[in-house]
Write a protein that binds this DNA or RNA. Sequence first.
DNA 1: TTCAATGCAAAGTGTTTGCAAGCTA
DNA 2: TAGCTTGCAAACACTTTGCATTGAA
Lengths: 149, 149
Amino acid sequence: MVRSEEVIDELKRIVKQKGLKYTEQREIVLNILLNANEHLTAEEVYNLIKEKNPESNIGIATVYRALGFLEDVNLITSITFGTDGKKYESNFKDHHDHLICTNCGKIVEFMDDEIEKRQDKIAKKNKFRVTSHSMQLYGICSECQKKQS
Amino acid sequence: MVRSEEVIDELKRIVKQKGLKYTEQREIVLNILLNANEHLTAEEVYNLIKEKNPESNIGIATVYRALGFLEDVNLITSITFGTDGKKYESNFKDHHDHLICTNCGKIVEFMDDEIEKRQDKIAKKNKFRVTSHSMQLYGICSECQKKQS
DNA sequence: TTCAATGCAAAGTGTTTGCAAGCTA
DNA sequence: TAGCTTGCAAACACTTTGCATTGAA
C-alpha cells in the first residue's frame, strides 16, 4: 500500500507527460478509489462523490470518463461480475485475486504464492511473456450457504 | 464430458418435473452451448443459432429467457470477465483456463492440477462453496514477441 | 489564448418485460 | 383445451457521445 499523496503525484506526472490537463474531478475519483475498501461500480463512485465532495457537482459522464482514463494509465483496474456491472479498484493495493459470492456479490481478496509460481511456469511453457493476470473463484459464501439451507 | 443426448434428456426430465413445456428453442440454446468450445455471450448464442438453425426464427428475448432458465436449473453457468458482458458455458465440459495474448488476441487454453488444488484449499479456508472459476494470464505470445523485437 | 475536460442531455448498448398469438401436454 | 412459451416491440438500465461552456497551462 502506498500513501495517497504519492499516487496523486503520479497522476499529476502522467497527465503532464501526456500534455493533458490536471483536473480536480480526476483527482476526486482516484481518491475515492484509494480510500475505498471494496470494489466500486461507476455509480457507487458517483454517489460517494456526491456524499463526500458535494461541492464538486460532478456529472456521471465525467465519472465514467475519469474511470476510463485512470484505467488506461494503469492507476486503477476493473473487474466485472454478475449483474452489478464493472467494478473498479485502485492498483495501489497488494496484488491479490478474488473470491466472489455469486449470491450476494461479496468479494473476498486473497493471495497465494504457490499459484503465482505455477502461473509463471505455465506462461514459460507456452512461451508467453505474461504482464498481468486475473483470477476469480465463483461460489457461495458461508453466510449465503446458511441462508439457503 | 457427457454425450449431448444425455444432457438433452436431463433437460426434458427437469422440464417435466417442473410441470413446464418442452420447447425446441430451449433445446437449441442448450445444444449450441454443448457444442461450443468457448464461453458465449447471449448475442453470440443468438448469432450461432441463426447460422446453424436458420429455420428456427428464434428471437433474442427467447435466447435470454432460455439462458436464464438453463442457468437456473444448473445445466449451464455464466461468468463475466473483460468487457464482453455475461458469458455462458455448459456445465458438461472439461475445465480449462486461458492464456491471452494482448497483442494479437490469441487465446491458449490450459489446465493445471496444482492450481486447481490450491484453489480448492483457498475456497475451503474462506468457507466458500466454489462452483466455478476463471483465470486469465495476459501477456505477449511467442510470435508477437518475435515481431516486436 | 488555447484546447482538453466538463456537465448536460441525447443517443447507444445490452437486457428485460408486456402482450397477443402459437404450441405443448 | 389450458396455460406455458414465443416473437415482436417497447421499456429499461447502464454507458458513451455530441456539444456548448468552463477552466488549466
